[in-house]
Amino acid sequence: MKFAITSKGNPASNALTQKVRTYLQDFEMIYDESNPDIVISIGGDGTLLYAFHRYSSRLDKTAFVGVHTGHLGFYADWVPSEIEKLVIAIAKTPYQVVEYPLLEVVIRYRNGGKEMRYLALNESTVKGLVGTLVMDVEIRGDHFERFRGDGLCVSTPSGSTAYNKALGGAIIHPSLPSIQLAEMASINNRVFRTVGSPLILPEHHTLVLKPVNSFDFHVTLDHLTVMHRDVKSIQFKVAKEKVRFARFRPFPFWKRVHDSFISDGR
């Protein structure tokens, strides 16, 4: 089996990275950064997001596993004290693959330029360069509302526990292939109205944002921010690809939610 390791880059994560690499090579596993069967992320959720985007072109061939070296990570199943146990599991145990839905983002341009397609594991956000964002929101080709506010966030089920949750969105189990639209500080008064609630769309529904009075935007894809100019539309839907996580022991989703947001360690 071929493996690669992504480190957060701090001393603790780098030391752990070297230890894991040495241990796995002692088990005659092959270190291969280009074509790994399994990627071990050592750090936090941001490190795993980086690993996901680095290997997004081979999601059908690569599985991910996370080790957190700081605060409890939502995607990280293992802690540094369990490294030997994890190494033995990777080297000796067939792992279960758990698949989570991803978000597809397609940006089209008014000048007819080549459309851009991206994948996100957590979410994508759209904000104007200056002032209020004004967007027409279409669902399945029908106009739904005209949004005015700071921005919009479209998240995956696994990403529903990240920025979406801070915006008041629902937490969705990742077995439900769906996307969620949440508002950022929408303007609602006697003249301008939005639905004011997060919207959860199934996998066969497509969400499209169309600019009204400005065509330049900051679009985030997880931890990445890209500026797009002369935008005609931004389309979101559940991607055909999925992210694959290697599970060597049970870690139910609702236990993960509990441990991340409710547990006080007792």
Rank of each mutant, 00 (worst) to 15 (best):
V226L: 14
A182G: 12
N111P: 11
S7C: 08
I234T: 01
V212S: 09
D150V: 07
K61V: 04
V191I: 15
E115G: 14
Q18M: 11
M184T: 05
M227S: 12
F236I: 03
Y23D: 15
S34N: 11
T220A: 12
V39P: 00
D136S: 13
S160I: 08
P94F: 09
E241L: 08
F217K: 03
N10S: 08
T62C: 07
I30Y: 10
V191M: 13
E28W: 02
H223W: 00
S214Y: 04
Y55Q: 08
V231H: 08
Y23I: 15
T194I: 10
R244G: 10
M1D: 09
G265Y: 05
T156K: 03
R140M: 12
R21W: 02
L221K: 04
I83A: 11
A239T: 07
R190G: 09
E115C: 07
I262S: 05
K19F: 11
A4L: 07
Y50R: 14
V79N: 07
R146M: 08
A162W: 02
R266E: 10
M116Q: 14
W254M: 12
G265F: 08
V97I: 15
V126L: 14
L49D: 04
V134T: 13
G131R: 04
D150I: 06
T69D: 10
H68G: 01
V219C: 01
K92H: 07
F64W: 06
L119T: 12
M116A: 13
D37N: 15
D259G: 03
K61S: 15
D136I: 04
E82M: 12
T69G: 13
P174K: 00
L133E: 01
V97K: 07
E145S: 15
E84K: 08
V219Q: 00
G73S: 09
N122I: 06
H228P: 13
G196T: 06
G196I: 05
R146A: 08
I234N: 01
Y109N: 03
D259T: 07
